[in-house]
């Protein structure tokens, strides 16, 4: 069994987002494996342990993402591929993934439901459609039974259970698996695992990010005495006009 796990390289979730002109101000920003992608990786490594799969991680990024890729190898992926390019938009990234996937015979392609930086939530569906495979997202449970899989997918107000044959693409979220923290042995081994760098395929007509802005700041919070709850109701009704 061969599993491809696609990971993004994103600012830590506690990052205070600031912009320097037209780009994210990366000063002091820690980069991590996309939190949803980290779940995909964790589940893939579990399947590797249960069924003996080969797990390849793929990242579309410049050389600056290599520490993130090494971390994925330390968590348990067998090898890695970096498509050497700035990931400009979802279509661009999806076409890089498809170019890699078409040259191999993966049984499944896993990734997060979305990246936590650009939140497009598109790559799994784009890849699925271009591969001619089903794509399922957000997938919150994944069990393999021979050449098919059972999944739980989150829907509004609940979840649905699905049965799907291999191969497929899934965009995952919790509680599919617990995030894994690399141990010392994993970190040592990751240094020797293969990381192949390949050039991107050309993609035309991508969307273009022109400028960024921050949400308007909140005005001062009005504090209300817990013994005067009526005041809160009054403010919600007559000042905020939300009741």
């Amino acid at each position: 069994m061969k599993i491809l796990v696609c990971i993004s390289h994103v600012p830590d979730t506690t990052t205070k987002i600031k912009f320097d002109g037209n780009k994210l101000d990366e000063n002091g920003v820690q980069f991590i494996i996309g939190p949803y992608d980290d779940y995909a990786l964790a589940r893939a490594v579990e399947i590797q342990g249960e069924k003996g799969a080969t797990v390849t991680v793929l990242n579309v990024g410049t050389a600056s993402t290599e520490p993130t890729i090494r971390k994925a190898l330390a968590i348990g992926a067998d090898d890695a591929i970096r498509v050497d390019a700035e990931p400009t938009d979802a279509m661009f990234v999806a076409k890089q993934i498809v170019a890699v996937a078409k040259a191999e015979n993966y049984d499944m392609i896993l990734m997060g439901r979305e990246s936590s930086d650009f939140n497009g939530g598109l790559v799994h569906g784009l890849v699925g459609e271009m591969m001619g495979w089903p794509s399922i997202a957000p997938c919150m449970k994944l069990e393999l039974n021979g050449d098919s899989a059972t999944m739980a997918r989150e829907i509004e107000g609940g979840k649905e259970y699905l049965e799907v044959g291999l191969p497929f693409v899934a965009g995952v979220q919790e509680p599919i698996a617990e995030w894994k923290i690399p141990n010392m042995r994993g970190i040592m081994m990751a240094r020797k695992k293969p990381l192949k760098v390949i050039p991107p395929v050309e993609v035309e007509g991508v969307t273009e990010y022109q400028s960024f802005s921050l949400p308007e700041g909140k005005s001062e919070c009005k504090m209300i005495d817990p013994d005067n709850i009526g005041e809160l109701v009054n403010l919600l009704k007559n000042e905020a006009k939300v009741l």
Partner: peptide, 9 residues
């Protein structure tokens, strides 16, 4: 973008 922390044009 950035999970509710910013907007992009």
């Amino acid at each position: 973008v950035y999970t509710g922390k910013a907007f992009a044009n």
